[in-house]
Write a protein that binds this DNA or RNA. Structure first.
Lengths: 196, 196, 196, 196
DNA sequence: CGATAAGCGAGACGGTACGTCTCGTCTTTGA
DNA sequence: TCAAAGACGAGACGTACCGTCTCGCTTATCG
């Protein structure tokens, strides 16, 4: 077994994971405090880090946010198995709502979305992030199809976009809360006999 | 009959509606051309207007966009009466999708949404705009309730947020098109027997 | 012989001298208070007057200042006759120094000078003003020549520019005061046997 | 020997002297061409530099001008030693007149003076500049005292302010030229037996 | 007596420049 | 080679004034 792919064994100082983490932490701090818009400059300053270091690790502000945020989000969405699709979807939505209600997470999501409307890189980050989330929900739904709790011809894409659309819409416009009750009601409305 | 409240009737040169319209037109032109982000400077230049004049009429970029856009949107959504809720909602969604698919309108909506995440004024503009649109859909749905085509206890807020959430989500993320077919399918999924 | 030049005798409302005076007064108030730079807008506002009215009476800011100021200066410089050139010049300088030391007058002079460096109209106003002042001093000096207290070939221009140069220099740079003592000493230095 | 005061030795990119010089050069170019008033924006553009960079090096327009100009002025006024005060002062004045007659230098001086009347920073710059010039002339005069060509009780401040006042007055008002002849005549009038 | 013509306060308008802010890149020094 | 610091070109931001141009009104003079 030749170690061909890693040609040059490595020289120079190693990247400092602590630095990386400091940036992620600082980004969440800034978002949670919410005193001012998070700029690359304020982020670097808050992390006690050079701007270049931020750019070395991530290509754009949105990428930082996406990572800071996915670190938080990961443990919150284990896609539990409650035995029924309705239960699973309700649990999924409830977890998602809870997460989005955390000030830092909600603000981060909103900033990523905002950035994505102007910056192509941010758009890509957003696409990747949302694709991952959609896949998670799709998995839950497909389990329901396997169990026979959902018809095999159900349009999962439509259901998924309705679910995430609802969350994002309330998050971005802020006209109504993402309450526990809303999660329950929404789950019911998403699943058959709808659109039968 | 006291006429006290209106003390000084008005002095000074009148605001020039043509100027105002020139700015709105220029903003749509810039959005549709989409060559670069619309800045207040490029907008003023394109309209052949001083920057101050733009700020005299609108407090923020988002406010200009919202107005430019609602001017367009108004005639597109006449909330036609087709006899059935399903028909009405389908028509409503189809019109909305068509409008959002126009390059200028879609881009304007996305920029307003982006601005609203950082600027409080933009957020207010967005709230006003979305409230108007929600009311339009609510009117359509209430007509359905009156006709007995929708149960009187239907949670209209949920339906409405699902509908607009879907549109905005696809518009902002761009992972899937707002096709005619999607409008039809979505309409079916929004109305009972869903969530019964 | 028709009286062609004055064709139409005049119609319309008469110019209001009170308005004119209000502007001059306001300009001095602004200068004396010295809180901020005197702009045409602040001047009009302080005088309770439309901007156009100021421009109707004077072509430029400097013209207003020059007039506001010459109104003040007039009575201060009667070019008294003390019997000797030295006495006359000393009195002239002392009066000039005293006038320039008044906060409003000094500031007005400085602003006119500043304006004159960029605006041609202001330059013209300044030229007219300074020419008048130079003429006043020249009259005093010529009286000295007539009396035989100054040689007939004395270079009055040089003396005059030295005198006014001294005042303006100290006024504009502000490194040394225009004291009573300085007036006396300067007067002595300006007159023969200097440069004999 | 404590090395305490200079803690952090310096990090970050060094200031680029070439950039600095480009700005100074551009400022003189703009002044000499004299097509329009020198603005910070035109200056930055002419130097091929961001506006911020100009502000990084100098706090105000006047500061740039003062520096651009003192760079020029330095070599022009070597305070030559001709053996007599009269000769030295004549040379000093002649050099000063010659310098002020250069279009760029004269314009720069006038603009600094104008700026100094409104901007405190510019005033400070002007004070520093004029103080340096006064010191130069004072040195010449003191040499005269040492040589016994000037009485030890001569009021040098008065002589100095007369000299510079004359120059500035003619420069700012522009009613008479700063000719070679004027330099000679002025020098004679500045020195004893004047004010004896 | 109108009709006509200013004068006037107010303020909109097209401009220009201001000084600040952020972006993403580049360069220096020390670790 | 990495990292902190920060200079740099670029350009948008929102504000301040400029001088001109209407507005709706008031006040004078003339036919």
């Amino acid at each position: 077994m030749a170690a061909s792919p890693a040609r040059r064994p490595h020289t120079g100082r190693n990247r400092n994971q602590a630095t990386r983490q400091a940036i992620l932490d600082a980004s969440l701090d800034l978002l949670i405090s919410g005193e001012a818009a998070m700029t690359m400059e304020s982020l670097a300053a808050a992390a006690g880090v050079g701007k270049q270091t931020v750019y070395r690790w991530w290509p754009s502000k949105a990428a930082v946010l996406a990572e800071a945020l996915s670190g938080r989000a990961r443990d919150l969405v284990p896609a539990a198995d409650t035995g029924t699709v309705l239960g699973d979807v309700t649990a999924f939505l409830a977890a998602m709502f809870r997460s989005a209600n955390q000030p830092g997470v909600g603000r981060a999501l909103r900033m990523i979305m905002a950035e994505a409307q102007t910056s192509p890189q941010a758009a890509q980050v957003l696409r990747a992030y949302t694709a991952g989330r959609r896949q998670a929900l799709r998995t839950v739904l497909e389990r329901g199809v396997d169990r026979g709790q959902l018809p095999p011809d159900a349009d999962l894409d439509l259901i998924i976009d309705q679910a995430f659309g609802f969350v994002w819409y309330r998050l971005l416009v802020g006209h109504a809360p993402l309450s526990r009750r809303a999660a329950t009601d929404l789950a019911k409305r998403l699943l058959p006999p709808c659109g039968a």
